[in-house]
Write a protein that binds this DNA or RNA. Sequence first.
DNA 1: CAGAAATAATGAAATTTTATTTCATAATTT
DNA 2: AAATTATGAAATAAAATTTCATTATTTCTG
Lengths: 282, 282
Amino acid sequence: MNILEKITNELDMLSKSERKVAEVILASPSTVIHSSIAALAKQAKISEPTVNRFCRRLDTKGYPDFKLHLAQSLANGTPYVNRHVDENDTAEEYTDKIFESTMASLEQARKNLDSNDINRAVDLLTQASKISFFGLGASAIVAHDAQNKFFRFNVPVVYFDDILMQRMSAINSRQGDVVIMISHTGRTKSLVEVANLAKENDATVIGITAKGTPLAKECSIVLSVDVCEDTDLYMPMSSRIAQLALIDVLATGFTLRRGSKFRDNLKKVKDSLRSSRFEKKD
Amino acid sequence: MNILEKITNELDMLSKSERKVAEVILASPSTVIHSSIAALAKQAKISEPTVNRFCRRLDTKGYPDFKLHLAQSLANGTPYVNRHVDENDTAEEYTDKIFESTMASLEQARKNLDSNDINRAVDLLTQASKISFFGLGASAIVAHDAQNKFFRFNVPVVYFDDILMQRMSAINSRQGDVVIMISHTGRTKSLVEVANLAKENDATVIGITAKGTPLAKECSIVLSVDVCEDTDLYMPMSSRIAQLALIDVLATGFTLRRGSKFRDNLKKVKDSLRSSRFEKKD
DNA sequence: CAGAAATAATGAAATTTTATTTCATAATTT
DNA sequence: AAATTATGAAATAAAATTTCATTATTTCTG
């Protein structure tokens, strides 16, 4: 855990003098890692033992150990953070911000994913007699991508981004079919209805959506990619990328479960595209 | 710069005893940050001054300063690396690997992107009388996503993932139209032909593709997301995510260029979806 | 190519710097 | 007023650095 955050959190638990130390550190942590305990004590206008006690209260062995932790926190320097795009950003600035936010979202999504759920989902997919991917709007792209991947596995797979087709397909589903519903909000009415229809017709419904939403309630497994979208300028951005990464995970899990012979087959599919391309001259 | 790399690089410049120190450190850097100079000297079977000289040779002030640098290097600890999925990976392992590889690819893509090119591309897009996104296979998804985004901007935008439609659309293009061709390989024959047709008909062709490829040669701007795909199990994975992030960048650049009134409009588009969703009860 | 001279490397011991502990006093709470 | 807690001066301990003598290595010379 980042020690700077920890200092901020425990600010109330500290004594008056210790808080002075905390303030000096928070004001300029990069100076502190090059200061001796005496220098820091002087700057905070308290005694050296107080600095030492402060360090121990933060569960470090002493001042040098504390500096080590501090140095590490600074090195991380909040690696990938959601940074808001600003009106006056240059191309370079907003490019960096968007890429960083996307990485931060992926990081967050990874933390929130439960590998047991993924395992169960992969189980169901490998045993499915038919797989359907449904999404609308930005999530339609994710469904589209999923179809593109699972299609290569030579299993019956469909994708629809049209409400009526989704409904018809859901009504025709039966035991052994797996339906994957993709929605960032989990609140799109028509999608929830489709999920319900699929469930009523004995299909297994897997949701790539937020937990505790109306859509999630219709699903037997919810793979939740909880990502905050507040960087986004009124467009779904990070969420769909996390969803796509999740599709990659499911597809990879699928191929691993199927064994090495199956992967040879995948290679053939890929190679079949070769004649459609210009040769690479190395 | 990472101090561990630096040690490796300067290994030849070190004396025999100093190299012993280096070896002990490289073998277990995380132990060293908790050792005193005496402990380290003992472990490397050399004297304390030698450790001190070693530290100074690496441009640190002394042993404590060296430990600080080391701690920082460890904190950064090879942030996101392309790690290959292994046959026997658990769900947790391959999930982590895929997410990390994806993040590594984004990081790499960001480094390779030229913000001048992005600026020029955004310029062209804001002035375009019509925008077309063309892609096939996995890149079709990116084109699809781009349409979904640019559609909100209330500009004429189309997307085709069908060769014939692409050709027809390309032939009908004219001065002021911008055509964005998306292809990871840059070698798909039919796409190169479409790019050529568009160019012949005075459209501005922007490529989201690799540099120096047949497709790149037909483009007036090439936005290259050079990402190595060797983690991928015969499926395009990281590349398309980097491309999608690039679409986000272009879309964001577009909205920024259009000013704040325009963004109010975007909000309206988003709000228009509200009635299609179940209310969030907080 | 031996062997002397010069140079560089190394560690023991001394010194200095830095951190920690002890303990008496001051501040705060009960 | 008593008990508890917080604080810093001084003492101690620990760690790092410097000095300097010794040893190893290289370079030069006859």
